[in-house]
Design a protein around this nucleic acid. Structure first.
Lengths: 251, 251
DNA sequence: CGGGCACTTGAATCATCTCAAGGTTTGTGG
DNA sequence: CCACAAACCTTGAGATGATTCAAGTGCCCG
């Protein structure tokens, strides 16, 4: 079996300093020499098919993963067994940071389409972080960002109406795509309406209706998974409070 | 002014190894020698009056704070300026972890009653963490816990009904009080209904009504800020879905 | 070409919110 | 120690945003 012989897959070898994502990812802020050491530590790149899970809640924590291509979603489970999507992860983003410093994963990560991830073995990473203060600082930064991201989500779920939630979701995606040099005003959603609804604390039907309504207000254009943002400013300053919701009840 | 002379306030000197909270706090998992070094680094204990703010969104990050006594709340702001409470922090818990690795605080921390906090100067902490792998690991663990805590909150806000939210809130408090050797079935809330409502993504009135309803179901006893949990199991397995809500409509 | 899945749309229901009034506790100054 | 004001909390009635249930459309894949 060639799978036992890494030499058969030379392209699986990761090279951070050649990766276009390095400024968004773990290597950001590290100097050349340090990136080389990081590079040597990263074991392999793993390919995931649509629907395949990278890890599940309760799995032992062996490694951290950086998305290299494709999109992942992470989710947690209620006691009753239903899912709450906690995030979608684009290339350059880390998944499973919540488990750092613990023994087991606290969420499940699943590929939404074909995706590849870089595996950062935990043991190596922690050892290297002790040697490289800049890497350690970068890890703190990434964890801090994750906390901040979750706080924003809490705010969204606690305070915003359906149209505001969907608008915030689209704007957030748009911004993150822009950072990756992709179009910020036109893109394809890799997640289903169901996943979006779950993430935003809404039902699938409400998401669908809200897409329609945002389109009726000429803020966006939606056709299935394809989205165009036609009025960025309008989306950003969506009628506060419930006005956005009331507006389309009249039409 | 005696405030300039630390010797006038010998009790302000922190001593982690003498602190009953050390097993819940930063020193957990560190050996004696390491705790001594941590101790020397911790600058002072700061006293906060009810309503006083420890730091605000956007403040430069100088230090991390561990609650020593009292209760703090942390909150973030929407673009429109209203508040979302993201957590209540009991003795032994750290506040402001979301800012680690960044320049500025991403949330505001305020005392709910008279409180004291231990100040961990960031510079010293980061330097010490490089020297002490166990401290560095402990910081990772605490940040990971914070991420996990936020994920649970997201789940609560995204999926649960008002009675489930309030029950989860009370159970969470109960558990954390138990860890501190306090009664888990009878305690005083240090936060107002308004703060609870804000935290749980509900209105003040809904929280008040829900308290009444949980009491009518003989699960708790509430009188103002005083709460007794009379049926722990019942609170834990609150009628899933909307049943909890429908149940008390008939009464 | 047909079956299944993802999405849209409609109508009725419901949980929670809003508005409003009354009651209770807390803190303060006389 | 009492009186008063200001918060804080409770309760009720009506409004509403989002859900649920249900039907129908479009699309991808075998």
């Amino acid at each position: 079996m060639p799978t036992d012989r890494p030499i058969s897959f030379p392209k699986l070898k990761v090279a951070c300093h050649l990766c276009s994502l390095s400024q968004l990812c773990v290597p950001a802020g590290l100097d050349r020499v340090d990136v080389e050491r990081l590079d040597r530590m990263i074991e392999r790149r793993r390919i995931l098919r649509r629907g395949e899970q990278l890890f599940r809640v309760g799995d032992r924590l062996h490694a951290l993963y950086a998305v290299h291509s494709g999109v992942l979603k992470t989710s947690v489970l209620t006691d009753e067994g239903d899912e709450q999507v906690t995030g979608f992860h684009l290339p350059g983003e880390l998944v499973g940071l919540g488990a750092l410093g613990s023994e087991r994963h606290g969420c499940t990560a699943e590929a939404l389409d074909t995706a590849s991830v870089c595996e950062l073995p935990l043991e190596g990473l922690e050892k290297l972080a002790i040697d490289l203060p800049s890497l350690n600082h970068q890890l703190h930064r990434l964890m801090g960002q994750e906390i901040t991201r979750e706080e924003k989500l809490v705010l969204l779920l606690g305070k915003k109406s359906a149209p505001e939630r969907l608008a915030a979701f689209l704007l957030g995606l748009s911004e993150r795509l822009a950072c990756r040099g992709l179009s910020s005003h036109e893109f394809n959603l890799s997640m289903s309406r169901k996943d979006i609804a779950n993430f935003l604390g809404l039902t699938l039907e409400t998401v669908s209706r809200t897409f329609t309504h945002l389109q009726a207000q000429a803020l966006i254009n939606v056709t299935g998974k394809h989205v165009q943002i036609t009025d960025l400013k309008g989306l950003q300053r969506l009628p506060h409070s419930r006005a956005g919701a009331t507006a389309y009840r009249g039409s």
